[in-house]
Amino acid sequence: MKTISDHILDILQNSVRAGATLIEIMVNEDKTSDIYAVEVKDNGCGMTEEEVQKAVQPFFTTRTTRKVGLGLPLLKQNAEASGGNLVIRSVPGEGTVVRAEFGLKHIDRPAMGDIAGVFVLTAIGHPSVGFGYTHTTGTGSFRICTEELNEMLEGMPLRTPEIRKAVTELIRNNLQSVDASA
């Protein structure tokens, strides 16, 4: 995974597969404590304490098509390489929160990458799931969610070319206006 947005794209699939109907992405840049926190919260099926322990092991997966599951281990590795950590909290039947903290200014923190593209692609890829994205920096906060978008679009699909491009641009412009780090 080259960028943090790749990791988010990956973790979102976990949530979708857990049957979540509402998935929140929260990114918080804290210059004072030098932390770049990424949190993905879902209302999916959740995991037991034992499964949470195993989730970061590369040879644990709930899939039957293959025997490895590298999404969370790779995220943990990248977070730790930049002086951060990965915490998973989960309640069976209620949902899961995956929180990765990176060192904001650490040289080994991957760049955020194309988060706007990730948000739009995932929303198009799973039209029946609600997605929210909040990005907070010292300058301000920006939030977008598919519920609000769908209401405004009044039945026009998000995948309509002009709309897709406009939403991507909207996210990029707003991230710029809150001085989001690369």
Binding site: E148, L149, M152, L153, E154, M156, E162, I163, A166, V167, E169, L170, N173, N174, S177
Partner: peptide, 13 residues
């Protein structure tokens, strides 16, 4: 114009 708000998006829609 730059697209920065849902109102801008609505215009495009």
């Amino acid at each position: 114009n730059k697209i920065t708000s849902l109102a801008d998006l609505k215009r495009i829609k």
